[in-house]
Design a protein around this nucleic acid. Structure first.
Lengths: 123, 123
DNA sequence: TGGTAGAATGTGAATGGTTCTCATTCCTAT
DNA sequence: ATAGGAATGAGAACCATTCACATTCTACCA
């Protein structure tokens, strides 16, 4: 566990904003000014493999999340912010509805639309 | 509607395999040998805007789908094939479970794991 | 405390999928 | 037939992510 890796994890644990790699870089640089983007990507990958971080792939890019409990996301189509949603009941039902032979390791649920911040704006 | 655009739509309508842009290119070239990758992307975008085609963004890349009815997908982690799943009951329940102020326009559900083709192989 | 092996870092270059530019070609409608 | 506008093909440009490599750090043990 290097200083860089700790900071990246700390940044992700401290925010609800699902930052992109660039945003993580900016935030980590506030305490470790010398960090490189390469290290951000490398460590995000390692942390992901270790199950400590999750990557959310959307049409707008990749965003990162400290893993707490599994939960679905809501992606705003206007500002592309990612919001957490409470765990839906659906997961187990879905797993049972699957055809034979499919082994599920992750359920990824994403709703799109406009968030409260954007919904109040005139288009 | 140009010949290229028709062919792209035809290719997507005729397969269940959720091809990538490159795979669409290869398939369209069987009847229109001169098509360029640029046209594939341009037309996939137009068809998407027209609601005739859907883009599925996964960690493994973007894949395309002729829109029939809304349905969730299963992505194989080993071969990255995308499979259609029957429409789950969950959608309406989910919409109701959302906090105030979120307006949903799309529900994107993706399961990951191994498909029957890969499940039988030794790792 | 010092020394060392192996892993992680920063830099910058490479990659690869997607978008853009632009000159040329194709439709459509007159 | 012909002009105007849109779509095309070719290739350059873009940009997020990954890679390569020389340097630095970390953890561990004497």
């Amino acid at each position: 566990m290097t200083r860089q890796r700790q900071q990246i994890l700390a940044v992700l644990a401290a925010t609800r904003s699902h930052p992109s790699a660039e945003e993580v870089l900016a935030e980590v640089r506030r305490t470790l000014p010398g960090v490189s983007l390469g290290s951000i990507y490398r460590n995000l990958k390692r942390l992901r493999e270790a199950g400590l971080v999750r990557e959310i792939v959307t049409a707008e890019g990749r965003r990162y999340d400290a893993v707490t409990s599994p939960h679905p996301h809501f992606v705003c189509e206007r500002c592309s912010r990612v919001y957490d949603l409470p765990e839906p009941v659906a997961a187990e039902a879905l797993r049972r509805a699957l055809p034979e032979g499919f082994a599920v390791s992750q359920i990824h649920l994403e709703l799109k639309g406009t968030c409260p911040e954007c919904g109040s704006l005139t288009s």
